[in-house]
Design a protein around this nucleic acid. Sequence first.
DNA 1: TTCAACATGCAACAGGGTTGCAAGATATTT
DNA 2: AAATATCTTGCAACCCTGTTGCATGTTGAA
Lengths: 137, 137
Amino acid sequence: MEQLREMLKGHQLRTTTCREDVLSTFISKKNALSHGDLEGMLGENYDRVTIYRTLKTFLEKGIIHKVLDDEGLRYALCSQSCSEEKHQHDHIHFKCNECGETNCIENLHIPAVKLPEGYIPENFNLLIQGTCPKCKS
Amino acid sequence: MEQLREMLKGHQLRTTTCREDVLSTFISKKNALSHGDLEGMLGENYDRVTIYRTLKTFLEKGIIHKVLDDEGLRYALCSQSCSEEKHQHDHIHFKCNECGETNCIENLHIPAVKLPEGYIPENFNLLIQGTCPKCKS
DNA sequence: TTCAACATGCAACAGGGTTGCAAGATATTT
DNA sequence: AAATATCTTGCAACCCTGTTGCATGTTGAA
């Protein structure tokens, strides 16, 4: 509770119940969430648009980041030190084809890639699809 | 022309003008295309739905594959040997933040990644964003 | 407590993507 | 070359995602 307020304040955001709920949902569920997921969980309390705007705000402030998979867009908490100015997300996302969950794999960075002449990379995004530990029989 | 018919036949597809046009667009443009791109180029000749269905068919037959970036979904030609049963796409996509184009980088594979215990990977998808050779000033 | 700045809800809209169905085109057989 | 079964297309309708404008409600700071 108080923790949430601190997190929001730390990013110069006013504390509202919607922001607290969205943030605490991200913290309790650990996998990446789509807008639809959040709407399903919180939609009776808040307008769709408010949830969209909350996600947008969190994105801009560096609280969450985008996670892409073949089904669409999701969001996940930024591990620690992202800010409005600087995002560092060279980590790996794993999507399980059985349960459908997408997770960030922490502590594992994308290996270096030698691009052909002339390409200037800025951002890396590696998605691995397969079967997660929970679902392997 | 005749080439296109052969490609379609090779995948057990009837030759129709829409399929020929979509296929030849993918061949001439070399970057990944969204449905919207194709609709912009061919939309006066074919219904939106037909283009969607053409893309879906090509996907299923292994003629094209999905390319993800932060803006959404695009499609690109499969380099060679994909079939309905087996896709192999462990290659790299590069999206230029200047011109917005996304391209497959051929001849460059994703380096091996050691996943934690229990994860069984099947598919890799690496998106690199940055500036492409054409746009670097 | 007051007030400016910010957040929310509502309505309305644009775009992406899908489905059902009737009409049209394709490849094949005769 | 005509007939037929099968596949494709176009149309209409629909759902989901995401956005914008505006009036109303809340927040935090003075």
